[in-house]
Design a protein around this nucleic acid. Structure first.
Lengths: 335, 335
DNA sequence: CTGTTAGCGCGTTCAC
DNA sequence: GTGAACGCGCTAACAG
């Protein structure tokens, strides 16, 4: 490794290790003159303190973990961008873990973080989780934890999301106002907080406008894109095809366009579609699509900020007080 | 923190710390019976060894760093996916750093990695780098380093890229075969390896087909999307507008479509476009676009595999031997 | 087979 | 103002 450490600096300066350490940490008990000498050599040799020795000593890692279901998804990509920028601002490092929507992996990953590897965790849940013991474990360890987007509602932790219920409601109401009467909902699993909320908004909007909730118009999608595609295709092939579609995630909106292209159904004329989507994606999509844009970058930044707030609190008061849930209102933009 | 450590286990089992340590590490000098007892308590208490203490002792961190220019880019997103999967397979953790195409940030980040924080680095260069001292620094420290996509050619390190020269050549030749004679090239900065290679392919293809290289058809784009857009718009407004466009990255192809939409120029009929793009993006783009798909996920996986190979070699032989450059052939698919 | 000892690099007492 | 000594949690060398 040949890395320069305090010992090496001390040797070259004919000083003791602790003096050098203090000098670099700008301790008041060191002469300005020696500080200067030490700093000079440190700079010259590109001295960097060993992060692990420091972590061990100070019992904090200057590192946070981000656990997300997937990364080939514009929302999470933008969120990471926000998270990284805030982390850098605080001098923190960011570890990234992907669950690939696999509950077992999510559990394994949380185990890895149990013993001080990170000072805090930002996470968005994978869909297939019923039990959530592993989350309580993290909580027990007093590890600051902030959920974003796909949150776990039964845990008293900070959560940053869009207002999914309201978005779902507005999206559906928008379609109704456009004259749609048979509105399909391409839904993501209900065990996901965002899936549940968006569905609730959809149903409430129908109710408020005296429209029936038709089970056959609700397509329960999964992370199996092939099956989703088949379901959507089947939906569009019916003779009593829907005249409006509310897609809960952008991928499902895309699937819809693909299915229609194959069937030569002129979606733009006949069927109105509204979907959650992210800025970058929105530009690609058919202009006839109305999108609800989530401020992913902002959500990432805010979630990270809250996490650092919690970490700071914990450091000061030596006990971790739970921050209450935070909601960022989504911006709904026609496109 | 209240974390369980070896000392705590030892106390509860009436054993010495080192015995417990050996038992957990399955040392041959420990009785199966004690191993069982130790393992049982460890499991019960969810014991996880402190990663930093272990790193400090063993002088390795089980962590790698990934440094990329941006993440809101399908290529890097997919690459990270590949990298993470290989890292997980090896029991490694992944730190992520974004340079945002900022040379200064890139330097700062490499500084942070100088003192043992990571066992290896995967990186893709930011565009605005002239000097590259910081890269030589990493190299000096014997830190295993693998470049992917945007590589630094003057350093003897492993590099994983698509065959950009060949792709550029084939793309241009394809347009020529389609009957195009005035082919524009939307180029990315030449100080990026991929930019240079793609440009070389473009020029060679023109030469081989007895077509002139016209400087006015080569648009030098930067990371300022506004300016790129303006340049492209200006290009398309000329009366001697190109009849074919080779866009070196997907974003530029998108800009082209947007510019044409604003100008009401029917791109599909009149102008052929070919571009590098990634799978997910390709689905969104105008079907008239021909895309060259880069196997980003595979590149990520391969780069990571090579890095772990290098790390292993270094551990065994205690000296880091440089692996030679590896090229993955790109798959060029019409779309 | 088990325990004692030493040290990874750092920061923090506490003497001088 | 400076240095010696200790310990963070763990592993490895050496005793017994």
């Amino acid at each position: 490794m040949k890395s320069v450490n305090l010992k090496e600096l001390a040797r070259q300066l004919n000083l003791s290790i602790s003096t050098v350490s203090k000098a670099l940490n700008d301790s008041y008990e060191i002469t300005p003159e020696t500080k200067r000498r030490v700093q000079e050599l440190a700079d010259a040799l590109h001295y960097q303190p060993n992060p692990y020795a420091r972590s061990l000593r100070k019992q904090k890692s200057k590192t946070i973990a981000v656990i997300i279901p997937e990364i080939a998804n514009n929302f999470f990509t933008l969120a990471i961008n926000g998270i990284e920028s805030i982390a850098r601002q605080h001098g923190y490092h960011v570890l990234i873990y992907l669950t690939h929507e696999d509950y077992q992996k999510e559990v394994e990953i949380t185990q890895l973080l149990q013993n001080g590897r990170v000072d805090g965790v930002l996470m968005s849940l994978s869909s297939n989780n019923n039990e959530n013991e592993h989350l309580f474990d993290l909580h027990k360890k007093m590890l600051p934890l902030v959920f974003f987007d796909r949150v776990f509602e039964d845990l008293e932790a900070a959560k940053v999301t869009t207002d999914d219920y309201e978005s779902g409601y507005k999206a559906t109401a928008h379609l109704i106002e456009q004259g749609c009467r048979r509105i399909a909902h391409l839904a993501i699993p209900k065990d996901l907080s965002i899936g549940k909320k968006r569905m609730q908004g959809y149903i409430q909007a129908l109710n408020d406008h005296q429209l029936p909730v038709q089970e056959d118009l609700i397509i329960h999608c999964t992370d199996n894109q092939q099956m989703n595609y088949a379901f959507i295709r089947e939906l569009m092939e019916r003779k009593d095809r829907p005249d409006g579609i509310f897609a809960s995630v952008e991928k499902l909106a895309i699937n819809t366009y693909q299915a229609c292209a194959e069937l030569h159904i002129p979606i733009p004329e006949e069927v109105k579609v509204i979907s959650f989507a992210n800025l970058e994606t929105a530009a690609f999509l058919n202009p006839s699509l109305t999108t609800i844009t989530q401020p992913a970058f902002e959500i990432g930044k805010q979630a990270a900020s809250i996490l650092f707030e919690a970490i700071k609190m914990k450091n000061i008061k030596n006990h971790y007080s739970i921050l209450k849930s935070v909601l960022i209102k989504r911006k709904s933009t026609g496109c």
